[in-house]
Amino acid sequence: MQRVNMIMAESPGLITICLLGYLLSAECTVFLDHENANKILNRPKRYNSGKLEEFVQGNLERECMEEKCSFEEAREVFENTERTTEFWKQYVDGDQCESNPCLNGGSCKDDINSYECWCPFGFEGKNCELDVTCNIKNGRCEQFCKNSADNKVVCSCTEGYRLAENQKSCEPAVPFPCGRVSVSQTSKLTRAETVFPDVDYVNSTEAETILDNITQSTQSFNDFTRVVGGEDAKPGQFPWQVVLNGKVDAFCGGSIVNEKWIVTAAHCVETGVKITVVAGEHNIEETEHTEQKRNVIRIIPHHNYNAAINKYNHDIALLELDEPLVLNSYVTPICIADKEYTNIFLKFGSGYVSGWGRVFHKGRSALVLQYLRVPLVDRATCLRSTKFTIYNNMFCAGFHEGGRDSCQGDSGGPHVTEVEGTSFLTGIISWGEECAMKGKYGIYTKVSRYVNWIKEKTKLT
């Protein structure tokens, strides 16, 4: 034993070699072989497995989906700052455009905790909710729209109204504003409101030439003092309507412009014939205590009207009353817009006519005020429907199939267009061939041609 100890002390290297040989010859039971080890760690190889990531292109799944990435790591994937920024906006807080917040056709661009709407022409605001041009839906104005110097929408209202708090709607500024039905039992019968379409306001006024200088022999019209197929109006439903009495009662109609003036057809009036105007009328054979009678003290036909040349060209006249009318729910003026808007309103496509005229061709006159909704007829169809001249200051309205029309005794009465609950004068009943005849239409004086003249002559002093 002493000898062994001496050998170990003198030859430590020998001992180490012996131990190493023993270990190498022993069977290893701690580690699995290569094949079995792979069965336990069965993990798919990654895209760049075996390579240094710093030297390969980034992978979106590896960089940002398996674990949260930084902007720089995302930049490695896209290799483009702009594309990385677009991805980053949604990656950080989701897609803010998912709810489609942009209105009126706006395009949404996502941002971090926010979004941006790219608005089409005519709109602005956070969600493109603000109209900035009158060309689109009248700028959301209830009545009139004008573009300011910086191309912003400025709404306005006709006389007797003021802008509401929203700067879009119009509200009454006087007790009985024009064009409004205020009798409670008839307010439910107000005709369907007309909503502004998209309009090209630059070209809204037709490029028409008034044929002022045409000389033409007097034409022989049949029954051209021209509501057939209409309905009984309720008291106060058309408070701007008046009836004219002269040699015979209810020979023509008219509309209240203001307390002192009536507008009617020029062919209705004769110099030297006494005319009485009755406002607030409903049943011409009954006294309903809503009527107001006034005498006409002055007749002003349009300066281009000449019955000797043509009885229905420039067929418009103004009547001055001896005493002002007292405005109330049964006696209310009709609204008159400017030339541009009167023309736009007419193009809405349908209007209402009213009167006490004959209820059928050569038949009896109506006792109760009649009204009828009539569609506008395109000019080409209008011209083809008659052998008589249709001037540019006239328009056609009615039904091709016949059966409904204005008729004798309705002449001078109103053709009105309702705009968001307020009625505007767009025409004056003038003439036609018979009444409600198939293929024939009622012919009306186009008020847009005469609004400046009306307003100039009827100013209240």
Rank of each mutant, 00 (worst) to 15 (best):
R3S: 12
N5H: 14
M6R: 14
M6I: 07
I7M: 14
I7E: 13
A9Q: 14
S11E: 09
G13M: 09
I17W: 12
L20V: 12
L24I: 08
L24P: 02
N36T: 11
N36M: 11
N48Q: 02
E53G: 00
E54Q: 02
Q57Y: 00
L60E: 02
R62P: 01
E67C: 00
K68Y: 05
E73F: 00
N80M: 03
T81V: 14
T85S: 08
E86F: 05
E86S: 09
D93N: 14
N104C: 02
G106Y: 03
C108K: 03
C108E: 01
I112E: 14
C117W: 01
C117N: 02
W118I: 15
P120N: 12
F121Y: 12
G122M: 08
G125L: 02
E129N: 07
L130D: 14
C141G: 00
F144V: 02
A149T: 14
K152G: 13
V154P: 04
E159W: 06
K168D: 03
S169G: 09
V174I: 08
P177A: 09
T186I: 15
S187T: 15
T194F: 13
V195Q: 15
Q219R: 07
S220N: 12
F221H: 12
A233Q: 07
Q241L: 15
V243K: 10
A250W: 07
S255N: 04
E259T: 06
W261C: 02
T264M: 03
E270C: 07
V273I: 09
K274D: 15
I275Q: 03
V278K: 06
A279Y: 01
I284F: 13
E286A: 09
T287M: 15
E288R: 06
R298I: 01
I299H: 07
I299C: 06
H303S: 07
N306R: 09
Y312R: 09
H314N: 13
A317C: 06
L318P: 00
L318A: 03
L319E: 01
L319F: 04
E320G: 03
L321N: 00
D322T: 04
S329V: 05
P333N: 04
Y341H: 06
T342L: 04
F345E: 01
F348Y: 15
S354V: 14
R364C: 04
L367F: 11
V368K: 14
L383R: 12
S385E: 08
T386E: 07
M394W: 06
G398A: 05
E401I: 09
E401W: 13
G409K: 11
S411H: 14
G412E: 04
G421A: 06
T422A: 05
G432P: 15
A436Q: 12
K438I: 06
I443N: 01
R449H: 15
R449S: 15
V451A: 14
W453V: 01
K455T: 07
T461C: 08
T461F: 09
